[in-house]
C-alpha cells in the first residue's frame, strides 16, 4: 500500500478541525478521485500527503521518496521555456546534465508536445501549460502523483481531451494517482475509485468503485454520476441553516 491514512486530523490554530478522522488506503497503481464540495479540506489533505503541511493528529504512510504534485494552475516558471521547466525538475532530482535534455524531450513527446519545447509558458494555451506541468510532475519520477484540481480552470473541450490524455499516461506509466476534484463527472470519468469527502470537518463518508464498463457506457456512467451527486448534495444540505 503506497498510501495509508489513519485517523488523520488537521486543524489550523484553535479553529474547527478542517479534517477529522480521515481513513483511506490507496493501492499501488490505483487511480483514486477525491471528491468534495468547496471547503471540505481536500486540498489540505493533498498537501499533507505531499509533505507541504503536517497533520495535527493521526498517522499517514506515504512512499519514502515523497510524491509528485500537480497544481491547479500550471505553476510553470515564466523565465524558463517549456523544456527548461522540465529540465529544472530533473536537475533538482539530481539527473546529470547530459541526460536531462533527452529525458525532457521524451517527456514532452509523451504529452504530445514534442514541437513546443522552446516555447515559453505565456506562449502556450492553458491546456498545453497543464500538459507541460504534467510532464514536469512525471519528471520527478515518483510512484505517487498527487493532482489538485489540475483541469478546473480549463475549457470543457480541452478538459475532455486531457481526461483521455491523463488516462493514457496513467496506463503507460503505472503511477498511483490521487486526483482531487469538485466535479462529479470528472471523478467518475477518471477514478477507479471515488472517495467522497464531507465538509467541515472533512471525512471520507462514502466510496464507489468505477469499472471499465463505466468508461465506455455513457448511460452507466451517467447513472453513477447521479448517485454520487445526490449523496454529495445530501452532504451539502447538512450545512443549511
Amino acid at each position: 500500500m503506497p498510501v495509508v491514512l489513519e485517523n488523520l486530523g488537521k486543524r489550523f490554530g484553535d479553529g474547527a478541525p478542517v479534517l477529522d478522522d480521515v481513513n483511506a488506503n490507496i493501492a499501488q497503481g490505483e487511480f483514486v478521485a477525491l471528491l468534495g464540495a468547496s471547503g471540505c479540506g481536500k486540498s489540505t489533505l493533498l498537501n499533507i500527503m505531499a509533505g507541504l503541511e503536517l497533520p495535527t493528529s493521526g498517522a499517514l504512510e506515504v512512499p519514502s521518496d515523497g510524491a509528485a504534485f500537480m497544481f491547479q494552475d500550471a505553476a510553470l516558471f515564466p523565465w524558463l521555456t517549456a523544456r527548461e521547466n522540465i529540465e529544472l525538475a530533473l536537475k533538482l532530482r539530481g539527473v546529470g546534465k547530459a541526460d536531462r535534455r533527452t529525458k525532457a524531450n521524451e517527456l514532452l513527446d509523451l504529452v504530445h508536445l514534442g514541437g513546443a519545447g522552446d516555447k515559453r509558458p505565456h506562449e502556450l494555451s492553458g491546456g498545453m501549460r497543464q500538459r507541460v506541468s504534467l510532464a514536469r510532475s512525471l519528471a520527478q519520477d515518483r510512484q505517487l502523483l498527487l493532482m489538485d484540481e489540475p483541469f478546473a480552470a480549463l475549457d470543457a473541450i480541452t478538459r475532455d481531451l486531457l481526461h483521455d490524455e491523463l488516462e493514457r499516461i496513467w496506463k503507460e506509466t503505472g503511477r498511483t494517482i490521487v486526483f482531487v476534484t469538485h466535479n462529479v463527472r470528472e471523478a467518475v470519468r477518471l477514478g477507479q475509485r471515488v472517495l467522497l469527502l464531507s465538509s467541515r470537518p472533512g471525512r471520507v463518508v462514502q466510496e464507489w468503485n468505477v469499472t471499465e464498463e463505466h468508461r465506455t457506457d455513457a448511460g452507466l456512467a451517467g447513472q453513477l454520476t447521479g448517485v454520487i451527486t445526490a449523496r454529495l448534495r445530501e452532504e451539502i444540505r447538512r450545512h443549511a441553516k
Binding site: E6, N25, W208, D217
Partner: peptide, 14 residues
C-alpha cells in the same frame, strides 16, 4: 493497516 470503515456503495450494474 486499518480496514476501511467507510461504506462501499455498489456501482449500478449494466
Amino acid at each position: 493497516m486499518p480496514s476501511n470503515t467507510t461504506p462501499l456503495a455498489e456501482a449500478p450494474a449494466p
